[in-house]
Simulated scan of single mutants.
Amino acid sequence: MNADWDEVSYVISSSYRVKVLGRLAESPATPSRIAEETDCPIAHISRALRGLRERELVDLLVSEEQQKGRVYGITEQGEEIWETIEAQNLA
Rank of each mutant, 00 (worst) to 15 (best):
S14H: 08
L24H: 03
Q66G: 04
I81C: 04
L49Q: 00
G73E: 00
I34M: 05
V58I: 06
C40G: 08
H44V: 09
A48M: 05
D39C: 09
S13T: 13
D4A: 08
Q66D: 10
L90G: 08
I42V: 14
S63D: 15
P41D: 14
R33Y: 04
R17H: 06
E65V: 12
I81A: 07
D4N: 15
V58P: 02
E36N: 10
L21V: 03
S32C: 07
L52R: 00
Q77C: 06
D39A: 15
R33P: 00
A91Y: 12
E76A: 13
V18T: 09
Q88K: 14
V58K: 01
S14I: 08
S63M: 11
I81L: 07
E37P: 02
Q88L: 12
V11H: 01
V8C: 05
V58Q: 01
L61K: 15
N89D: 14
G51H: 10
E83H: 09
S9K: 13
A29M: 13
I34H: 03
V58Y: 02
A87H: 12
Q88P: 01
T75G: 01
Q67G: 12
D39S: 15
D59Y: 03
R53P: 02
R50G: 09
E7Y: 09
D59W: 01
S46P: 02
I34T: 04
Y10A: 15
G22F: 03
S9G: 05
Q88N: 13
Y10L: 15
K68P: 02
A3I: 05
R23I: 00
E80Y: 06
Y16A: 11
A87T: 14
S32L: 09
A29Y: 03
Y16L: 04
R55G: 03
W82I: 03
R53K: 15
R33C: 01
A87W: 09
P31Q: 06
G51T: 06
Y72I: 00
Y10E: 13
I42Q: 11
T30A: 09
A48D: 05
L21R: 00
R47F: 09
V11D: 03
S32E: 15
E56I: 06
A87N: 15
D6H: 10
A91P: 03
R50M: 08
M1D: 10
I34G: 03
K68S: 13
S27E: 15
P28V: 02
L52M: 03
L90F: 10
I34K: 03
E54V: 07
Y72N: 00
E80D: 13
R23D: 02
R53C: 07
A25H: 11
S15D: 13
S46A: 11
V71E: 05
Y10S: 14
L57S: 01
V71R: 06
G73C: 02
G78C: 07
G69P: 08
S14K: 05
I81S: 01
S32M: 08
N2A: 14
A35L: 04
L57C: 04
E36M: 10
R55W: 01
R53T: 10
G78H: 06
G51P: 04
E76V: 12
G51L: 12
R70M: 08
R55C: 03
V58G: 02
E65S: 14
L24F: 07
K68M: 10
V62W: 07
S46R: 15
I34W: 00
P31I: 01
T38P: 01
T30G: 08
E37M: 09
R47H: 14
E7A: 14
Q66P: 04
A87Q: 13
I74K: 01
Q66L: 14
M1A: 12
L90V: 07
